[in-house]
Simulated assay, not measured.
Amino acid sequence: MGGALLLGTAACNDDNGGSNGSADAKATAGGGSSASAPADTAPKTSAARLTVTPADGATDVQPKDGLQVAVAGGKLTTVTVTDKNGKAVDGKVSGDGLSWKPSGQLTVGTSYTVSAQAVDAEGLVSASTSTFTTLTPAKTAGTSDNIADNGTYGVGMIVSVTFAKPIKNKDAVLAGITVTSSDGKTAKGHWFGDKRVDFRPEDFWTPNSKVTVKYRLKNVEVAPGVYGDVDKDEPFGIGRYQVSTVDAAAHTMTVDHGGGKTETLPITAGNDDNPSWNGTMVIYSKEVVTRMNSATVANVKGAEYDVQDVPHAMRLTRSGTYVHGNYWSSAFGKTNASHGCVGLADAKGGSDTSNGGKFFKSSMIGDVVKIKNSKGKTVDADNGLSGWTVPWSKW
């Protein structure tokens, strides 16, 4: 059959070129039977084997420690991780070239693409591309604080943050909240229980400085399976300087306006049965008129009271301590006659020209009021914004 095929080929060639064509055909046939060119070989593959964790297409990936790129049989050369908007994730290849991890946490509820390359000892490249999605938290801990965006507060303002759920990973939360001022002061957080953390600097804020609260909690697992709910910057300003010192024994309040400007006002503080708290407190609310009722205050001794139109009230503690105007007493500068509050002379309905009215007008939330020489105990740090009573070394 082979001969027949050769003859068939020769006959065709004869038709085109006679005996020379036949000779060409024989040469061609002979060449085909003794070919010496090497056969095609498969390309070499890299010995580097890339492993990307999580696997391609994975969902509900933990934003912390959920991503790693590793290689065996080679060294990593390039690792790029980007979110759906093309924003790159910072990371670093290990010193031995065998692994890569992100520098920080990933964002929850976000899709990422991982592109990695490695080379083996012969310089052959191995590449991998994969995608995954981080988890979307089923539970979050609501966050609230006592700061209004771009509000202005006194030099003693304490930032108090409250969570809707108990916090277990307190250090992680503290790392996710920073409070800094334009003059370089930094506030430190102090926990009161597992739902409240207060922030203050070592000493009072600088007048006319700017403070920014930075929340970065959305990627923080604040408790098992529970994440923070806020990433935002919250700026506020510090106003002029005003620090007032109440001397309960002398029945006076000295108001320091800074720059050597002070004034001393006669007051009445808590009586012997209901002494005022000692310590450093902060005005945290102001009401032109409020109602004060002994039924709303614990452990009041003596006759009950209910004054429905207390003027110029500035609250200092959750337990009911105020600096306020008083129109029903004449004890100012003479004796302590109140149920724990600091009273200033005022008129019924409130008078802007009275001591109570003028102090109310000059005061703002965040101003400091110190009380000393009272027969009462030192105020608890979490009673209002009284954290200044705690030494910095214990804050």
Results as ranks from 00 to 15, higher is better:
residue 119 V to E: 05
residue 177 I to A: 03
residue 228 G to M: 08
residue 114 V to M: 07
residue 365 I to D: 03
residue 316 L to R: 08
residue 346 D to S: 11
residue 143 T to L: 11
residue 329 S to D: 14
residue 226 V to L: 01
residue 167 I to G: 01
residue 237 G to P: 02
residue 122 E to N: 12
residue 173 V to N: 00
residue 117 Q to E: 15
residue 288 V to H: 08
residue 117 Q to Y: 05
residue 305 Y to A: 08
residue 375 K to W: 00
residue 230 V to W: 01
residue 218 K to F: 01
residue 118 A to R: 04
residue 295 A to M: 09
residue 373 N to A: 15
residue 360 F to G: 10
residue 52 V to A: 13
residue 233 D to L: 13
residue 384 G to Q: 08
residue 345 A to W: 03
residue 176 G to C: 06
residue 118 A to F: 10
residue 27 A to R: 05
residue 308 Q to A: 14
residue 243 V to Y: 02
residue 308 Q to N: 05
residue 134 T to F: 06
residue 249 A to E: 09
residue 291 R to C: 08
residue 223 A to P: 01
residue 89 V to M: 06
residue 314 M to P: 09
residue 125 V to A: 13
residue 168 K to L: 00
residue 22 S to R: 12
residue 149 D to R: 15
residue 166 P to N: 09
residue 147 I to V: 15
residue 367 D to M: 08
residue 157 M to H: 12
residue 395 W to I: 08
residue 115 S to N: 12
residue 41 T to F: 11
residue 197 V to D: 00
residue 17 G to F: 06
residue 209 S to F: 09
residue 91 G to Y: 11
residue 103 S to V: 11
residue 177 I to V: 12
residue 379 V to G: 06
residue 77 T to Y: 01
residue 30 G to Q: 06
residue 329 S to C: 02
residue 284 Y to V: 06
residue 271 N to R: 02
residue 34 S to N: 11
residue 240 R to C: 05
residue 29 A to E: 07
residue 173 V to R: 03
residue 300 V to G: 03
residue 12 C to G: 01
residue 331 A to V: 04
residue 53 T to R: 04
residue 89 V to H: 03
residue 358 K to N: 10
residue 132 F to V: 07
residue 3 G to N: 12
residue 190 H to G: 05
residue 313 A to W: 13
residue 207 P to T: 11
residue 201 P to L: 07
residue 21 G to Y: 04
residue 267 I to A: 05
residue 339 H to A: 15
residue 262 T to P: 04
residue 395 W to Q: 07
residue 378 T to N: 08
residue 210 K to H: 12
residue 201 P to G: 05
residue 111 S to V: 08
residue 367 D to R: 08
residue 347 A to Y: 03
residue 222 V to K: 00
residue 17 G to N: 07
residue 212 T to H: 06
residue 160 S to K: 15
residue 371 I to M: 03
residue 162 T to H: 14
residue 143 T to C: 02
residue 271 N to P: 09
residue 180 T to A: 12
residue 391 P to D: 04
residue 250 A to W: 02
residue 152 T to P: 07
residue 168 K to C: 01
residue 2 G to P: 02
residue 197 V to W: 00
residue 299 N to P: 02
residue 82 T to W: 09
residue 100 W to F: 14
residue 25 A to V: 14
residue 259 G to V: 13
residue 368 V to Y: 02
